[in-house]
């Protein structure tokens, strides 16, 4: 192995948290393997580049091109390919978010490289990177190695810890002018719609989800008020989404989103295997259910046996008292 390259995404004048997690993962791999690690950002700004330094990344390449003023996955892959070649990097890390999961395999294909997605562990063993990845919606996990010279990985969000070094470092920033034409821009983002005021389950530290036990869309305000007391995002089980009570964007589980928040609160969710698959890597799981034999109680840290219609408002009140939210 020669050099690690990390794909960085800016957010305002900072980097996305998932990018900081990827830098931290690169730092420990680089230390273990005794190789350098650098970052690549597309149309980044000075503050974003500097922010990478707080996580120990001293070298950042800022690739600038006007065709990337609106994001294009095809053009981004082309830029990355050029930078990887010019830097002679052979270990490429992406955050496993919507953008990374779309871009990483395209870059791997350009490099004819092996790719491991959604990794939850990366370590060096006998000079090889051994990656750990959940499969079958987290019901099992595999360890695997990539055989090609160039190796591409994406990292599951909120699994690798982003840690600042607390040391001042001298940054080296290189501006890079990629070679792009309109033909590279076969797909591009033409509009963006934010869920105003609503936190996404994929970005939340705490998630409060409701299941069939909530009995109807009109009762979901209970879940929402508990979520607001925690400062949490609202999630839902498949039953709730299929019944049309909540949008699919909130569905947690095998055919919804896979999440790993610090706290997952399951209200009136029995714990079907498909739901557990989507949240089993949460750090702490709280279950509220009136059926003491519900499978969710077998996988929770704290379980409350009781009717959610009385427990949830009480809990919301007490949490609110503590958090002041």
């Amino acid at each position: 192995m020669n050099k690690i390259l990390v794909f960085l995404e800016g957010q305002n004048n900072l980097l996305k948290r998932t990018s900081c997690e990827a830098i931290s993962a690169a730092r420990s791999l680089a230390t273990a393997a005794g190789i350098p690690y650098v970052g690549i950002i597309i149309n980044g700004n000075k503050e974003q580049v500097k922010y990478a330094g707080e996580y120990g990344m001293a070298n950042v390449i800022n690739a600038k091109h006007e065709l990337m003023d609106t994001y294009s996955s095809t053009a981004a892959a082309s830029i990355l390919h050029q930078v990887i070649k010019s830097e002679n990097a052979d270990v490429i890390l992406f955050a496993g978010n919507a953008k990374g999961m779309e871009l990483a395999p395209r870059v791997a294909a350009k490099l004819e490289a092996g790719y491991m997605s959604d990794c939850v562990g990366l370590e060096i063993l006998d000079g090889n990177i051994i990656a750990k990845k959940p499969v079958y919606a987290g019901k099992a996990q595999i360890t695997a190695k990539v055989n090609s010279d160039c190796k591409v990985f994406s990292l599951r969000p909120n699994v690798f810890t982003a840690t600042k070094t607390g040391e001042a470092i001298t940054m080296t920033t290189k501006d890079y002018a990629p070679n792009l034409s309109e033909d590279d821009k076969k797909a591009f983002v033409s509009a963006l719609m934010k869920n105003e005021g609503r936190m996404d389950v994929l970005e939340a530290d705490i998630i409060v989800s409701g299941g069939r036990g909530i009995k109807g869309a009109e009762n979901y305000n209970l879940i929402e008020s508990l979520a607001s007391a925690f400062g949490a995002a609202v999630g839902a089980s498949r039953a709730v989404v299929d019944a049309g009570w909540r949008p699919h964007s909130e569905q947690v589980g095998q055919t919804g989103k896979t999440v790993s928040p610090n706290l997952y609160v399951a209200c009136g969710i029995s714990g079907a295997v498909q739901h557990l698959a989507g949240m089993s890597t949460s750090k702490i799981i709280v279950a509220i259910n009136k059926d003491k034999d519900a499978p969710i109680f077998k996988v929770c840290d704290y379980g409350v046996v009781g009717d959610l219609f009385t427990v949830v408002p009480k809990l919301a009140e007490k949490v609110k008292h503590l958090t002041g939210k």
């Binding site: 959940p134 499969v135 987290g138 019901k139 099992a140 996990q141 595999i142 360890t143 089993s280 890597t281 799981i285 003491k292 109680f297 077998k298 996988v299 929770c300 840290d301 704290y302 379980g303 409350v304 046996v305 009781g306 009717d307 009385t310 427990v311």
Partner: peptide
Amino acid sequence: MSIPSKQRIGRILSD
């Protein structure tokens, strides 16, 4: 391949 088995606290409370 392995089956992940995160140790959970498993404390059950009443309402």
